[in-house]
């Protein structure tokens, strides 16, 4: 094919199938967990450097877990989006808490995500802001331009929109498959395949 290709390939493709754009910024890579087959497009920013500074004292026995951002399989982080662990005061001191993301999560271009947790099969549109410590469950669709306030809980099968986000509909029974991102995964990378 005659597609113009960057000499080294635009993406770094890892053993587990992650496709990470060379032009993406991943800070604190040792604290970023990728489940595999995840696409990270150019100009994406992941703040793995914002790790928890205070470990929960009760878990002192366990090896200190420094994961700042964990991402499941088949996630798609679009150009210019940002994942940033949420932070808060804990016993009088400020600390960041990890940001966890399930499988098949699409984050649209220019969106900023500071959630505590995002389930699986979640679609976040373009230029969305997900506030700190928001909890987004499975099969949720967040429409373009939505601002999800901090601490908001969005239950499964919700469609939310607006500033601040409000429930505007339910994901219909026949809409579950649309969250699947396997097909989209194939269309990017150094050897993209046409969408089927």
């Amino acid at each position: 094919m005659s597609s113009r290709r960057a000499p080294r390939g635009e993406y770094i493709e890892t053993e587990t199938g992650n496709k990470v754009a060379r032009k993406a910024t991943l800070l604190g890579t040792q604290n970023i967990m990728l489940g595999g087959k995840t696409v990270i497009q150019p100009e994406v920013l992941i703040r793995g450097d914002l790790i928890r500074t205070i470990q929960a004292s009760t878990q002192s026995g366990a090896a200190s877990n420094n994961t700042a951002v964990s991402i499941g399989r088949y996630c798609f982080l679009s150009r210019g989006c940002c994942l940033r662990p949420p932070g808060r005061l804990y016993k009088g001191a400020f600390t960041f808490m990890p940001l966890r993301m399930g499988d098949h999560v699409f984050v649209g271009p220019g969106s900023v995500v500071q959630a505590a947790s995002i389930g699986s099969h979640v679609h976040i549109g373009t230029n969305v802001v997900v506030g700190e410590f928001a909890i987004i469950k499975d099969y949720v669709r967040i429409l373009d331009g939505t601002v999800v306030p901090p601490n908001m809980v969005i239950p499964s099968f919700s469609i939310v929109a607006g500033q601040p986000a409000r429930l505007i509909g339910e994901v219909p029974e026949g809409g579950h498959e649309a969250f699947e991102l396997r097909g989209l995964y194939k269309t990017v990378g150094n050897n993209p395949q046409p969408a089927s």
């Binding site: 929960a56 808060r88 005061l89 016993k91 506030g131 601002v147 306030p149 901090p150 601490n151 601040p164």
Partner: peptide, 27 residues
């Protein structure tokens, strides 16, 4: 007021006491 404070699971450890108010983290 720190809206995120009490939403966290370990809010019982919070050293402060009442009175309390409901506050909006958006507006």
């Amino acid at each position: 007021p720190d809206p995120s404070l009490l939403a966290a699971p370990d809010n019982t450890a919070a050293p402060h006491s009442g009175p309390y108010a409901l506050t909006c983290s958006y507006c």
